[in-house]
Computed example of a mutant assay.
Amino acid sequence: MDPIPVDDDLLRGWPLAKPGAHSDKEERGRTLVVGGSAEIPGAVLLAGTAALRAGAGKLTVATVQRMALAMAMALPEARVVGLPETAGGGVDAAGALLLKPLAPRANALLVGPGLQDEAAAPMFVQTLLQHLPPAVPLLLDALGLCAAPHVPQREGGLLITPHAGEMAQLCGSAKEEVQADPARCALDAAQRWHAVVVLKGSTTHVAAPDGRLWRHEGGNPGLATSGSGDILAGLIAGLIARGTPLEQAAVWGVALHARAGEQLAARMGGLGFLARELAAEIPHLMDTGT
């Protein structure tokens, strides 16, 4: 199947649903972002900010306990939950129990930005899944991707956002193999794990489990900067929290992310803008239909 190009015609024909004039924050959904560490505290800050900029109504951020107060100060719009930390700087599996009352209320759960401790991450995510109702959409990014092959098929769906290196690690193949045929890799992964797959790169492929495939070409080199992927993951999570289907949220999230970069490049130059500056571009782009 030839990939569907993500362009203006596609986006105009597949618009995001807009909330009613009298809708409130509850109707726009709750996003729960889980991740962060003492060494990478800003990842959940970026992802959470992007979720709110995408229009999500409420945000909860769960991160390691010693960063929780700082996170609450940096992101006053969010509820912040502190989680126990492993010796390796990750989130301890016991922290999943603290999220047990929160996870069922989420309309989108994003796990992974800024997580550390490769040994502890799979156990934490798998423990969290035991307390996550199957109807809650699950997004895995960064170190959270380690759990993707072990997630059972979910009513709410699974969405993953690997770059080529992460996809290669997940599939047990070489990065060069993924880069040689990213469309096939994305489709194979989508069908194998019953997931919407966002395979990131200068050309990004979005694959759905039913075999649909989209290709986005665009953006600019400035998007290849620290924290950019956290913004994309949070943006997609925020769109899903609003009730957007996973594949539409993925396609729109990729397009909005790229076009935010284009706007910043036009004002500031092609290199040197910061990932945190991308999020503020999103509301205007959504209003104008990109």
Rank of each mutant, 00 (worst) to 15 (best):
L69I: 13
G114C: 12
W214M: 09
P84H: 08
H284V: 12
A56V: 10
V111I: 15
G88N: 08
D287R: 15
A43W: 02
L239C: 09
K58E: 06
E247D: 15
A56L: 11
L138R: 01
L10Q: 03
A93P: 07
S228N: 04
P113I: 11
D117Y: 05
S173M: 13
A87G: 11
G48Q: 10
A54M: 03
A280E: 10
M286L: 13
D8A: 15
T203K: 14
V178Q: 03
T161H: 04
G90N: 09
G243Y: 05
A17E: 11
A121P: 01
A279D: 00
V178P: 03
G82D: 05
G112K: 08
E217V: 11
A208L: 09
V64R: 06
L83H: 04
D181H: 12
L46K: 00
L143E: 14
W193D: 01
V80Y: 07
A275Q: 03
R28I: 10
K58G: 02
T203C: 14
G270D: 13
R105G: 11
A241P: 01
T244N: 08
A186S: 07
T86C: 12
R53F: 00
P134Y: 00
H205V: 12
G269M: 13
R154G: 00
G95E: 04
A279S: 08
A255S: 12
G222W: 06
P84I: 11
V136N: 04
C146F: 06
Q153I: 08
P283A: 09
E217F: 00
Q248P: 01
R212Y: 02
L213T: 06
G20Y: 10
P134F: 00
D92N: 11
G88L: 12
K18Q: 15
A56W: 05
T204Y: 11
A189N: 01
V196R: 05
E247Y: 04
V44M: 04
D210S: 13
P15C: 10
A51E: 01
R192V: 00
E85R: 02
G218V: 08
P41V: 14
G48D: 09
A180W: 06
K200A: 04
E39F: 07
G42Q: 06
P41A: 12
Q248A: 14
V6G: 04
E277M: 03
E277D: 14
L69Y: 08
H205N: 06
G82L: 05
V80K: 08
L83I: 09
V91Y: 03
A50E: 02
P162D: 10
H216D: 04
T161E: 02
I231Q: 01
P133F: 10
A208W: 02
H163V: 12
M73S: 13
E39N: 12
C146W: 07
K200F: 03
V206R: 05
A147Q: 07
G218Y: 06
A74M: 09
A121I: 14
G165M: 09
A148P: 05
G165V: 07
L138G: 02
G201E: 08
G114M: 12
P113D: 12
E166P: 06
G234S: 10
G219P: 05
G89D: 07
L16I: 10
L46C: 04
E166L: 08
S23G: 10
A68Y: 05
D2P: 15
A78C: 08
R276W: 14
L246H: 01
Q130D: 14
P134W: 00
P15S: 07
G42V: 09
A93T: 07
R192N: 05
Q263P: 03
A54E: 00
A43G: 03
